[in-house]
Design a protein around this nucleic acid. Structure first.
Length: 430
RNA sequence: GCGGCAUUAGCUCAGUCGGUAGAGCACUGGAUUGUGAUUCCAGGUGUCACCGGUUCGAUCCCGGUAUGUCGCCCCA
């Protein structure tokens, strides 16, 4: 294995077997999004670096140490490979006034980049489906987004994905809580470990997430954000929960659920599985009412979430999902110049009728060609040799049974015969 | 970014107490010079991840690097 000809660490090739599986996944996702009225938006992978600093927050891990940022050597512009999708989506919405007249439901799908240490479910280039709703203020859209998740898991045949929700309140409520929290931790400074000390003034909420057992009792008694929420925030949170209860969606309120990005307020939620090891969050999001204004747009309430495609696909695999390799309807076997010319004509004629056709290329004996025909999974083989070519005919052989029947037909009659038999066998299956 | 474990054929893996390596699957050809999946026969397709050290000799021992993996961190 040469060291120079390798993909960049943490950036994976998705080979055909896997890629077909991805396409099936994407088909499911697109029709699911359509069912909720979401429309696609396609955004650049590269954005100006300041966009992410302003949107995500200067002191977050993402911005501090995980972004692929560089200076465009041709014009000196600071650019960054997008580490998440919301910032770019909001930038586009502001630039094109998307939410000015009416609320918008938008989605996108594509790669994101973060320079983290690769691990299962965590790669440097990874893919997300992002879903954003701009211009909706009430808890109804938050709740609908959560219901969407539940439906998608069902559509994908997944279970055991658990919902956690929390409310971060409004910035001023968070600020009060944060001050109280820092004061509380300062009182217990002698208990704090190095990690906690590092975060004390940058991201004290994260201390609550500690896995250090020595800190957990102290954290359990720390000031709770929910006690700092005002009536409006509490009502919003209750509004979300009422829809969840009506829909019969089980959830747990996780007061320690904090987002890694600064722009969230009010509702935050996460869908988590315990089947993927350390990277168990497959979908997460929340409300970000301040972001549009913060990025220079007219104040617009907003809510969104993102799903990790690699993680969901790993989970589908974990649950026994296997891609059914798509097989052609027909494999055309041929030998000799005249036969080859007739084979091309036959292949295009069959494709005209909507059939999927693999035309054998590369020569070889009938025997080896028949092996490839079988290996392709095709339902039929069409065999054309000198004899058939002389009369404009072809042998049509059914491959999906032992010693499959074979009959000679005019090339122009192949499509009709094949389609007829395909329909018959579909009827039998039903 | 930190720590543990791993890396042998296209794939899944075995093996060599240090003497340059094997199985299954897959693949190629043949068993009827025009027919597959079954069966039989033949074929190894490999820088034993890379670089260096120890040694008469290293795939094996040691060090470094790369990549993967598990956990930490972080997060989708």
């Amino acid at each position: 294995m040469s060291q120079t000809l390798q993909a960049v660490r943490g950036m994976n090739d998705i080979l055909p077997d896997e890629a077909e599986f991805w396409e099936l996944f994407e088909d499911t996702v697109r029709s699911w999004l359509k069912a909720y009225g979401y429309r696609p938006i396609r955004l650049p992978i590269v954005e100006p670096t300041p966009l992410f600093k302003r949107a995500i927050g200067e002191v977050t891990d993402i911005v501090e140490k995980e972004m692929y940022s560089f200076i465009d050597s041709l014009n000196g512009e600071p650019l960054t490979l997008r580490p998440e999708g919301t910032a770019g989506c909001v930038r586009a919405a502001i630039q094109h006034n998307l939410a000015a007249q009416q609320p918008r439901r938008l989605y996108y799908l594509g790669q994101m980049f973060r320079h983290e240490r690769p691990q299962k479910g965590r790669y440097r280039q990874f893919h997300q489906v992002g879903v954003e709703a701009l211009g909706f203020a009430g808890p109804d859209i938050d709740a609908e987004m959560i219901l969407m998740g539940a439906r998608l898991w069902a559509d994908l045949g997944l279970d055991g994905i658990e919902l956690q929700i929390n409310s971060l309140g409004q910035p001023e409520e968070r600020a009060q809580h944060r001050a109280a929290l820092i004061a509380y931790f300062e009182e217990h400074a002698e208990l704090l470990d190095e990690d906690a000390k590092r975060r004390l003034y940058t991201n004290p909420l994260r201390i609550l997430d500690t896995k250090n057992p020595a800190l957990q009792d102290m954290c359990a008694a720390a000031p709770k954000l929910i006690d700092y929420l005002g009536d409006e925030s509490l009502a919003h949170f209750e509004g979300v929960q009422r829809v969840l209860r009506d829909a019969g969606i089980p959830y747990t309120i996780n007061p320690r659920l904090v987002r890694g990005l600064d722009y969230y307020n009010l509702t935050v939620f996460e869908w988590v599985t315990d089947k993927l090891g350390a990277q168990g969050t497959v979908c997460a999001g929340g409300r970000y009412d301040g972001l549009v204004g913060q990025l220079g747009g007219k104040a617009t309430p907003a809510c969104g979430f993102a799903m990790g495609v690699e993680r969901l696909i790993a989970l589908i695999r974990e649950s026994g999902g296997e891609p059914a390799a798509p097989a052609p309807d027909v494999y055309i076997v041929h030998q000799g110049d005249a036969a080859s010319r007739l084979a091309f004509r036959a292949a295009e004629g069959l494709r005209d009728q909507g059939l999927n056709v693999l035309l054998h290329c590369g020569g070889g004996s009938f025997k080896s060609q028949m092996k490839k025909a079988d290996g392709s999974g095709a339902t039929f083989a069409v065999v054309i040799g000198d004899d058939e070519a002389a009369t404009g005919e072809a042998q049509l052989k059914f491959l999906r049974e032992e010693g499959g029947a074979q009959r000679k037909l005019r090339v122009d009659d192949l499509a009709g015969a094949i389609i007829e038999q395909l329909i018959d066998s579909e009827d039998e299956e039903e």
